[in-house]
Simulated assay, not measured.
Amino acid sequence: MTDSERPHGRADSGAGASTPDIPPPASEALRTALGQAAARAAGLNAEGAESTGAAVWTAMGGWRGILESVLPSLAFVVLFTLTYDDRAGQGNLWLSLGVSVGIAVVFSVIRLAQRSPASAALGGLVATAAAAGLALLTGRGQDNFVFGFITNGAYGTAFLVSALIGWPLIGLAVGFLMNEGTRWRGEPRKRRVFFWLSVAWAALFFARLAVQLPLYFAGDVTALGTLKIIMGLPLFAPLVAVTWLAVRTLYPPRQT
């Protein structure tokens, strides 16, 4: 192995010498954690995918992932709309939210039965239940979407700020997945691509807020829920495809 092939920050200490395990510095651990989170958010953790379509399908979780993402919200919107009372200015919250959470429970039980990691099985259920609890507490159907606003705001801010300070989250994610660390920062082309990809992801999250927040303040639960679904996977999938294609261009498969 030549010096250029060794990971940065390591040096040989002599033949046969053992190198003690040294914990990574806090900054490196933080970058790795951010890279992992960004990879999940941008759907880049599609290991083994050989095509863009396969990568997008994996990022969405296949048919089960699509159903888990869409059905709870769809059930809430449909039932809330069907039970809407003009005099009360409200749909049946208990029924709408109960069915929505019930669907999330079914999916979680299926995942647990198939021995999926507990975090994957329960993460969506906890988020759905917490949102439903807030809506029941306030008595307002639109509050079922508050946690989604917080998530979009947090992700959008993180992607945008990371790009502006020169540490785009897409770069951290790709560096983590490609075992490259942060060496991509020494290549202007990669830095430009990762910058604009991170900005694009920030734009997606902020676009959701820009469109949906006015409906939230107007109390239009049906339109809000419908647009939440439309601006979910239908916008997520194309951006995953663009991101995946850009990464494949920067890291073409090695010819054997």
Rank of each mutant, 00 (worst) to 15 (best):
M1F: 12
T2M: 06
T2V: 06
D3V: 07
D3L: 10
G9L: 10
R10S: 09
G16T: 02
G16R: 06
T19H: 14
D21Y: 07
P23Y: 00
A26M: 12
A26I: 15
E28R: 14
L34M: 11
G35P: 08
Q36V: 14
A37M: 12
A39C: 05
G43S: 09
A46W: 03
T52K: 04
G53R: 03
T58I: 08
W63T: 14
G65C: 11
V77L: 12
V77P: 10
L79V: 10
L82Y: 04
R87H: 12
A88T: 09
G89Y: 06
S96P: 13
V101S: 06
G102C: 10
F107I: 06
F107L: 09
S108T: 15
S108W: 08
I110Y: 09
L112S: 04
L112G: 03
A113H: 04
S116T: 01
L125Y: 03
A130K: 00
A131H: 00
A132Y: 00
L134S: 06
L137D: 11
G139L: 07
G139R: 10
F149Y: 13
I150L: 15
T151C: 03
A154H: 00
G156V: 08
G156E: 02
V161M: 09
A163C: 10
I165D: 06
G171K: 01
G171Y: 06
L172A: 11
G175C: 07
L177K: 14
N179M: 06
G181I: 08
R185M: 12
E187T: 15
P188F: 12
R189Q: 14
F194W: 05
F194I: 09
S198I: 10
A200H: 02
F205H: 14
A207L: 15
L209C: 03
V211H: 02
V211L: 07
L224D: 00
G225N: 00
L227K: 02
L227Y: 09
K228T: 13
I230G: 06
P238K: 11
L239E: 03
W244C: 04
W244L: 09
A246L: 12
